[in-house]
Design a protein around this nucleic acid. Sequence first.
DNA 1: GATGAATGAGCTTTCATTCAT
DNA 2: AATGAATGAAAGCTCATTCAT
Lengths: 200, 200, 200, 200
Amino acid sequence: MAKPTKEERKESIMLGALKLFSREGFYTTTIPDIAKALNMSVGNMYNYFKSKDILAKEIIKYISHYLGQEIRKINEKEIATKEKIHDIVTIYFKTAQKEPEMIEYFLRVYLSNREVFKDGCEGMICVSDFVTEIMIFFEEGVQKGELRDQDFFSAFGLFMGYLGGMVFLHGEKTLPESLEWYIDDISYNIYQALKPHHEV
Amino acid sequence: MAKPTKEERKESIMLGALKLFSREGFYTTTIPDIAKALNMSVGNMYNYFKSKDILAKEIIKYISHYLGQEIRKINEKEIATKEKIHDIVTIYFKTAQKEPEMIEYFLRVYLSNREVFKDGCEGMICVSDFVTEIMIFFEEGVQKGELRDQDFFSAFGLFMGYLGGMVFLHGEKTLPESLEWYIDDISYNIYQALKPHHEV
Amino acid sequence: MAKPTKEERKESIMLGALKLFSREGFYTTTIPDIAKALNMSVGNMYNYFKSKDILAKEIIKYISHYLGQEIRKINEKEIATKEKIHDIVTIYFKTAQKEPEMIEYFLRVYLSNREVFKDGCEGMICVSDFVTEIMIFFEEGVQKGELRDQDFFSAFGLFMGYLGGMVFLHGEKTLPESLEWYIDDISYNIYQALKPHHEV
Amino acid sequence: MAKPTKEERKESIMLGALKLFSREGFYTTTIPDIAKALNMSVGNMYNYFKSKDILAKEIIKYISHYLGQEIRKINEKEIATKEKIHDIVTIYFKTAQKEPEMIEYFLRVYLSNREVFKDGCEGMICVSDFVTEIMIFFEEGVQKGELRDQDFFSAFGLFMGYLGGMVFLHGEKTLPESLEWYIDDISYNIYQALKPHHEV
DNA sequence: GATGAATGAGCTTTCATTCAT
DNA sequence: AATGAATGAAAGCTCATTCAT
C-alpha cells in the first residue's frame, strides 16, 4: 500500500469531516471528533487545514466540483431538455439517497451558516462549479426552444429550492416514500413550470 | 406606561432573540447577546425561558402560528386558486422583505439545526399551524378542480422549497432584483406545475 | 384558624427547610425550593431569616434543643445507667427511623459543612443543649459508680460516633435490618465499653 | 526531572483536589481553585477527569485503596486481636493527625454528599477495598475466639463510627488533647465492647 | 408582611488552536 | 509529518439576595 500523497490525505480528511458536519452539524462537530473518526491526531489535522472554517470552505468547493461534474455529464448528452430534467432530478435524488452527506452539507452547513462562509465564499464562488453547469443547462434549453426564456433566478430557485426542499423532508423522515419514488412527479412539475407557453 | 404582563415580556424576548438567531445563527448568538439586546440581565432571561433550546422552540411555534394565520386569511377568500397562489407568494415575499427574520429563522435555524429541535418538535408539531393551512390550500384547490390531484409532498416541496430557495438567494444578496420583482414569474411557474392537465 | 405568630411561622420554615436540607443537602437545596415547599414567596422568606446560612444555624440549634429535651427526660428517670443507655439508644434510633430529618441534618449538614457554621457556632455552642445533657448523663453515671471514670471525649465519641455511624449506614440502605433491630446489641456494646472494670 | 506519566499526573491532581475538597468542602471548592493549586489550566484538568463528580469518585476509591492496604498489613501480623485493635486505632489516628485530608474526605465529602456519589458508588463499591479488610479483621478475630460472634454491622458501626466521631471532634478543634493521646482509652473501650462474654 | 421579577457574580464545562517533543 | 497535553476565553446556566410594588 503506497503512502498517500498530501493531496490524497486532504481529500480523506474532507470526506470524513463532511460526513460528521452533515450529520451532526458544523458547531456540534468538534475537531477532536473529526480527528478521532480519521484515526489521526488533532495537531496533525492542522497540518492539512489551518482552521475549522477553512476546512468547511474546502469541503463545499469539493462538493460543488463533484456535483458540477455530474451535471456536466448530463448537459453533454444528446437528449431532449425534458429528459435532462429527469436525469438531473434522478442524479440529485440518487446522490441524496446513497450518499446523503453531500446534499445535506450543502443545505444544512453551507446554506445555513452564513457567518462561516462569509469570508472566502462571497457571492457564489465556492459553489460556482455547480451553478455554472445549471446555468448552461438553462441556456441551452432556451436556445433549443425547449424552455421558456425567463429570468435565470426564477428558474434556478424553482429547480434547486424544490429539490432541496424534498431532500430536507427526506432528511426529516417526513416523506412516506423513498426519494426515488417522487422522481417522475417532480420532473413533471418542473417541466410544466419551465416549458414554453402552449406546450403540453 | 403600563407594566407589561409576563406574557408580553415573553413575546418581546422571543422577538429579540428571533432577530439575533436569524441574523447571527443559533450557535453564534449567545444568551448574553440576547439579554444585552433586550436590556435585561442574563439571569432574568431564565425566568422566562428555562433554556436556550426551549426559547428556540417557542420561537418556531410563534412563527408557525403567525404565518399560519396569514395563509388562513388567504384560504378564506372567495377567489380562484390561481389567485391564491399569487397571494401566498406575495405574502411570503413581503414578509421576507419587511421582516426577513421570520423566514430566515425558519430556513436557517429551524430547518438546519435538527439537534436543537429533535426533542419537542418531533414530526412537524412545532410548525403544524403553518403546514396545516398549506394542506388546506391544496385540498380545497383539488376539490374545486383547480389543482391536479397529486401527492401532497410533491406539491408541498415545490411550493415551500421554491419560496425558501428564493429567500435564501435574496438573503445571500445573490438576486439582482428585489423579491417582489419575482412574484409574477414565480406564481406563474407554480401554477403551471400544479394546475390540472390540459389547462392553459 | 388563628393567624400564626411570627415565631410559629419561623418554626414552620425551619421544619420545611430541615426536611429539604437533610434530604437533598445544603448546597443542592435552593431558597426557591424551600419557599415553594412552604407555599410562600422567596422574598418573604427573607423577612424571617436574613440569609441561608442563618437559617441553617437556627435549625441546628432547634434540633439540639429538641434532642436535648429528650435526653433530659431520660436523665431524670430513676433507673440504672445501664437502662438509660438502652433508653438513649432507643430514642435516638426511633427518632432516626420515624423522623430521620433531624439526625440526618445533624450528621450530613451540621457536621459536614464546617464553612457554613464556622461563624456563629464556634466550639459547640449551636449544639450545647444536646451535648450538655449527654455530659450530665455521663457525670451522674460515674457519680453513681455505674460508669468508669474516663475522659469525657473518649466516652462521648464512642456514644455519638457509634449511633451516628449506624444511622449513616441506615441512610445508605446498607443495613439489612431496621435500626430498631440493633438496639439491644448496640446498647450492650456501649455498656461493655463504658462500665466499670471487673463488672459483668 | 523526568516527565510524569499520565497516571502520575492523575494521582497528583487527585491529591491536590483531595486537600481542597476535605478542607473547603465539595461545593465550595471550584475547579478553578483546584487548577490553580496545581498550576495548571482549567481546561487541562478535564483531560484527566471528565467531570468534577468523576474526580470526587476517583478520590474516594483512591483513599479506600490506601487505607485498605494499611489495614491489611495489620491483618497479616501474627498478633492477638486485642493488639490489632490497638494497631488499627493507631494507624487511623496517625493518618488523621499527619494527613487529615483522607479521613476528613471520607467523613465530610464521601459520607455527606450522597447526591454526588449516588451514580457509580452504589452500595459500598467505592470503599470496598477498605470495608473488605475490616470484615476480614472481624472474621478472623471471631474465628480465633478473640471476638464475640455478633452482627457485622453492630461491630462495624462501633468501630468506624467511634473513630470517625473522634476525628470529627478533632477536626472541630473540640478535643483538648491530640488524637494520639486517646489511643489507649479508645482501644480499650472498643475491645471491651467486642470481646467475648466473661472475658476481662 | 408579602410578592416574584430582577440582578450579576460565579459555577462547570467545552473546544479551537498551539507547541514542545 | 505526527502527537496529544496544554491553554484560556467564553459558553450556558444557577441562585442568594434585593427591591419596587
